[in-house]
């Protein structure tokens, strides 16, 4: 990537990502005005955020050309984050009979 030509190509790619991110931002705001049910809205909003996040990570953070060690590390992180969130979440829906959750 040290050659100027490659960098020019990279910069063009960054412009495209920028435009894509802007469009997705507009889309996600627009959809929020459509008043879907909560479940659908969450799915749509988080899916769009997921796409945007992946674009940033892959291209701006150069993850797409990153080494194996980084992916192994991120794999662990994703697993532990999901286990943290989902196991706590699950424990809220699995209460002993006759008890309710206080908030």
């Amino acid at each position: 990537m040290s050659q100027a030509h490659d960098i020019k190509q990279e910069v063009r790619k960054y412009w495209k990502v920028f435009v894509a991110l802007l469009i997705l931002t507009i889309v996600t705001v627009a959809i929020s005005y459509l008043q879907f049910g909560l479940a659908v809205a969450v799915m749509v909003a988080l899916s769009i955020a997921m796409v945007k996040g992946s674009l940033v990570a892959c291209f701006f953070m150069h993850l797409i050309s990153e080494k194996k060690a980084i992916f192994v590390l991120l794999g662990f992180v994703v697993f532990f984050f999901l286990s943290l969130m989902l196991l706590i979440y699950a424990s809220y829906f699995n209460l002993p009979q006759g008890t309710t959750y206080v908030s």
């Binding site: 705001v29 809205a41 909003a45």
Partner: peptide, 14 residues
């Protein structure tokens, strides 16, 4: 930036 990309829809739009 990436964190904000998740915070914005979560807090503002849902």
């Amino acid at each position: 930036d990436l964190v904000w990309i998740f915070l914005f829809p979560t807090l503002y739009l849902l």
